[in-house]
C-alpha cells in the first residue's frame, strides 16, 4: 500500500493502517518533534497529538498538493509547535550545537536527497547566510523571531524583516 492509499484507509477508520504508518514513520516523525522541542517527553506528547490529528484529519490529505510524508510531517510539526507555544517557547536555545545545523552546501545534501529537495537546496544556497540560518532555525528547531535574534545577535526587527524577505525570495526562486 503506498502512503497516499494508507492515509485514505486511515480516513476510513482503518486502525491497522494507522499502526502500519506508525511503524514505518514514527522514527522520522519523532525526530522532527525532537529537533523542535529538544525534550523526549514533550516530543512524545507531540507525536501522540500528531497521530490523533492524523487519524482525525486523514480525509483532508490531498495528494495533488504534496506527498503523504510531507503532510504527516507537517501535522506532527504543528503539534510540536503548539506545544512549544504553550510553554512560551521556554525551550533551551543556549545549546551551542543548535547554531551548527547544516547551512553549508555539502551539509544540505540531506535536503537535496528528499523529494523535490534539490531545487529547495539550491534556492536556500542563493539566500544570504543569515537569512538561510534564520529560516532553518525556525523550521527545524522551532525558534521564535526573538530567539533567532538572540542566537544570531541581530536586532529583532532585522530578523523579522530578513525572514519575511527570505521567504519571499524562496517563493520566487521555487515558483
Amino acid at each position: 500500500m503506498d502512503s497516499a492509499a494508507q492515509l485514505a484507509a486511515i480516513a476510513g477508520g482503518d486502525r491497522a493502517a494507522l499502526r502500519a504508518l506508525y511503524d514505518a514513520e514514527a522514527p522520522r516523525l519523532f525526530g522532527i518533534a525532537l529537533a523542535l522541542l529538544r525534550d523526549r517527553d514533550r516530543a512524545a506528547d507531540a507525536l501522540h497529538d500528531g497521530f490523533l490529528n492524523i487519524a482525525r484529519r486523514a480525509g483532508q490529505f490531498d495528494a495533488s498538493r504534496g506527498a503523504a510524508s510531507a503532510w504527516t510531517g507537517a501535522v506532527v510539526r504543528h503539534a510540536a509547535l503548539d506545544i512549544a507555544r504553550r510553554q512560551g517557547r521556554e525551550i533551551p536555545t543556549d545549546d551551542p550545537a543548535l547554531g551548527d545545523i547544516p547551512v553549508e552546501a555539502e551539509a544540505l545534501t540531506q535536503v537535496a536527497a528528499a523529494d523535490d529537495g534539490r531545487r529547495l537546496r539550491d534556492c536556500l544556497l542563493a539566500l544570504e547566510e543569515s537569512r538561510r540560518r534564520g529560516i532553518l532555525l525556525a523550521f527545524v528547531h522551532g525558534l521564535s523571531h526573538a530567539q533567532i535574534a538572540a542566537k544570531l545577535e541581530l536586532p529583532l526587527g532585522t530578523v523579522k524583516a530578513w525572514i519575511r524577505r527570505g521567504l519571499a525570495q524562496l517563493r520566487g526562486c521555487l515558483t
Binding site: A35, R65, A70, A74, V111, A112, D116, V140
Partner: peptide
Amino acid sequence: EARLAPLSALAPPAPPP
C-alpha cells in the same frame, strides 16, 4: 508545506519511547 517539507530531512530520525 510542500515547498519547505524537504527541510524536515535535517532532523535526524530517533526512536520514539
